[in-house]
Every structure is written in C-alpha cells, then in structure tokens.
C-alpha cells in the first residue's frame, strides 16, 4: 500500500492528459496512416489495405510535385530570411541601443498578429497590378520613382513563393530576435572580458567567443521555423486562396480531403507532411536528450 502511495497520485494526475494525447494525437496519427494505406478514395467504399501504393502514386501527380517545389522554395527563403534578420536585429540590440525595450516590443509585435491578418494586409501590399492600376508596394515604388522595382510578387510562376515568404519573415523575425537576444545575453561577460584582455578586437570577440555559444539557439530556431514553414496553410490561403499558382502541401491536403472527398489521398499528403516535420524534429530531440545526459 505504501509503495503505491508514492507513484499512484502522480499517475492519476497525469492520466487524463496521457489518455487524451494517446487517443487524440497518436491514435489519430495511426488512423491517418491506416487511411493513407487504404484505397478509400470516396466517402462510400470501405477501403482495403493497399500498402504504400498511394505514397508512390502521389509522385506521378503533377500538382503534388509543384506543391512540394513551392514548399521547399518557401521554406528556404523563410527560414534563412527570418534567421538572418532575427540574428542581425539581436546583434544590434546586444551592442547596446537607447530605448532597447521599445525596439524589442516593436519587433515582437508582429508575433501577436495571426497569419490570416498578416496575409490580408500583405495581399494588398503585394498586389501585382501594373503601376497605372497599382496599389500597395507597386504603387509606392512608382510614386517614388522606383517603378522598375514593381513586380508580380507571389504571382510569378517561378519565384513567386519567395515573395510569399516575405510576410512570414516579417512576422517571425522578431521572435527569432528574442531567441538570439537571450542567447547573446547568456554569454557571460567574464568570457568577453577575458577575450578582450587577450587582445581580441570586438569583431573577434563575437566571431570566436559569442557566436559559438549561439549554436543551440540557431538549432532551436531552425526547428521552430522549419515546422511552421512545412505546415504553412493560413498565410497562403489568406493571400492567394486555393490556387495552383501558390499551392502548398497543406492546401492540397485540404482540397483532396474536403473538396474532392478523397480521404485516402488527403491522408497520404498529411502523412508526408508529418514525415517531413519528423525528419526535422526527431534528430533534434535525440540530440537534446543526448546533450542533456552529457550535462
């Protein structure tokens, strides 16, 4: 009896959330994979097991290839853009600036806005209309004599998704800045001073002392941005609605599941999205656990 008393209350306390997670997260992931490996391509048929057929067939689908290309381009531009900009802002803050609190708040504000709201504003800003009918940025460029900068933004067939990443960078770079700033502040002053005493220039202090300390921050930011990017849906729908020109896997999944009523294909796309995120997250988790053990 006494032995139970030690661990039972804890277990009982945790049980509801453990059960909920088991059912609503892992249970549904399992169900999704079961659906993805069936031939239930409409609402009616029961669907039988077909193995990985849907997973291979998807790559013959022109639209899927396009959606993946779009997602990759978006991810590269968004993740690099937000990392570099966030890092740079944090560096400026770290150098000491008057009214730092105010700047920090301003840069962080976009985080409080939803992707839908961001999308609606940037849809207008990035209107691809030519100058004579132009609004937003194209009109601005035109009126300050930079008309040659006016462009098609996200409507460009080859690099449009890079433009789509701009609002996402705007929204998330403040958050990355906060992460990096914490990283910068985590480097003890004694270390910097020791380096300076040893004759380091200010640049070398950063290059050899501060930056190496930022690696875990960079990795964490990479994971957070990467998984947002691979699942991106709301921003794309708010800016472009469900058009092929800006198709991404999450939008395609929605279309197959809720418009075409093809549960198996929708589940297959969802499974690929989960795998793509898992490729990012699982090595990170393994790495974290290992480094914690070492410490």
């Amino acid at each position: 009896m006494r032995r139970y008393r030690r661990w039972l209350p804890g277990l009982v306390l945790l049980a509801p959330s453990m059960i909920a997670i088991a059912v609503f997260v892992y249970g549904l992931i399992g169900w999704n994979f079961k659906l993805a490996m069936s031939d239930q391509h409409d609402q009616v048929t029961a669907g039988k097991f077909v193995g990985l057929e849907n997973f291979t067939a998807l790559w013959d689908d022109e639209r899927w290839g396009l959606a993946v290309r779009h997602a990759v381009l978006f991810t590269v531009v968004f993740v690099l853009g937000a990392l570099v900009l966030g890092w740079f802002l944090a560096l400026l803050m770290d150098k000491g600036i008057r009214g730092e609190g105010g700047f920090r708040a301003v840069y962080l504000f976009p985080m409080a806005v939803s992707f839908i709201a961001t999308g609606i504003v940037w849809r207008w800003l990035m209107s691809p209309a030519p100058p004579e009918r132009g609004v937003g940025l194209n009109q601005l460029f035109d009126s300050v004599g930079l008309g040659f900068l006016a462009n098609e933004w996200w409507q460009n067939r080859s690099y449009g998704m890079a433009a789509m990443a701009l609002p996402a960078i705007w929204q998330m770079s403040g958050y990355v800045m906060a992460l990096y700033l914490a990283g910068f502040r985590g480097v003890p002053d004694e270390l910097r001073e020791a380096a300076r005493v040893d004759g380091c220039t200010e640049w070398k202090v950063y290059r050899y002392v501060v930056f190496p300390h930022l690696r875990p921050v960079t990795l964490a930011a990479l994971i957070i941005l990467g998984h947002i990017s691979l699942k991106i849906f709301d921003l794309v729908v708010a800016i472009a609605t469900k058009q092929i020109i800006a198709d991404v896997p999450a939008v395609y999944m929605w279309v197959m599941t809720f418009d075409a009523h093809d549960p198996a294909k929708g589940a297959t796309i969802a499974a690929y999205m989960l795998l793509a995120v898992a490729v990012l997250v699982i090595p990170y988790l393994v790495w974290t656990v290992r480094s914690e053990r070492r410490a």
Binding site: R63, Q243, I244
Partner: peptide
C-alpha cells in the same frame, strides 16, 4: 461530382501557368 470538379480545377490551374 466533387472529384471531377476538383480535377478540372487542377487542370485549369496548371494550364494558367
């Protein structure tokens, strides 16, 4: 039906490009 509808939409979307 819904499937046909979606496939036409996809074909037209790809055609626009």
């Amino acid at each position: 039906n819904d499937r046909w509808h979606t496939e036409i939409d996809t074909a037209v979307g790809l055609f626009l490009g």
